[in-house]
């Protein structure tokens, strides 16, 4: 086992432990820390998938922006964002277990048997490739994303104005 494989398995381990912590942690701050750990792990997996630009954007957008946004919301909410979770509810536990069983069945039944990964194929996504795809083939989704971000900004400002008048 080479050094690269050891780092890869460590990254996978960190990702899965972070996902479990984000779901099962008692405190909401610990759940947020688990989410940040997961995002670091995902960025590492993007590096292993030869997509370094995506790894950088993962660090910038998720770790840099969304996590900080959620942290600000937790601090603004204070005691409201207290703890949650009752796994003793039988219906919820049945639903979660059923989802797990179905997804694992789908994975082992279809993904492992029907897909033939081309593991030897050359694949390297540079920033130049992504820029070329966005300006030649995917112009409409690119513009729609900018429109979506504008609408989200206006909506957030409108909600802030409404929140000023409540109580």
């Amino acid at each position: 086992m080479t050094v690269g494989e050891i780092i890869f398995f460590f990254t996978v381990f960190v990702t899965m432990i972070g996902a479990l912590a984000a779901v099962l942690a008692r405190s909401i701050v610990h759940a947020l820390l688990g989410l940040i750990t997961t995002m670091f792990g995902i960025a590492g997996l993007y590096v292993y998938l030869n997509s370094t630009f995506l790894a950088m954007m993962e660090m910038l957008v998720y770790v840099g922006a969304i996590s900080i946004l959620i942290a600000f919301a937790i601090m603004l909410l204070g005691s409201y964002s207290g703890m949650s979770g009752n796994l003793r509810a039988v219906g919820k536990l049945t639903l979660a277990g059923g989802t797990a069983v179905v997804s694992v069945y789908i994975f082992f039944k279809f993904v492992l048997t029907n897909m033939n990964p081309l593991s030897f194929a050359k694949y390297l996504v540079t920033t130049k490739d992504i820029g070329r795809v966005f300006t030649e083939n995917l112009v409409l989704p690119f513009e729609l994303i900018s429109l979506l971000l504008v609408v989200a900004i206006i909506g957030a400002v409108m909600l802030a104005i409404i929140a000023r008048n409540v109580k």
């Binding site: 996978v12 990702t15 899965m16 996902a19 479990l20 984000a22 779901v23 099962l24 909401i28 759940a31 997961t38 997996l45 959620i70 919301a73 937790i74 909410l77 409201y80 964002s81 207290g82 703890m83 949650s84 979770g85 009752n86 796994l87 919820k92 639903l95 979660a96 989802t99 797990a100 997804s103 694992v104 994975f107 993904v111």
Partner: peptide, 21 residues
Amino acid sequence: VALFMLFCGIAGLVYRRTLIG
């Protein structure tokens, strides 16, 4: 790993009671 994260997300959506979780 992607399937595991999907399952963790769905389980968290069911399990958490607060909107931030």
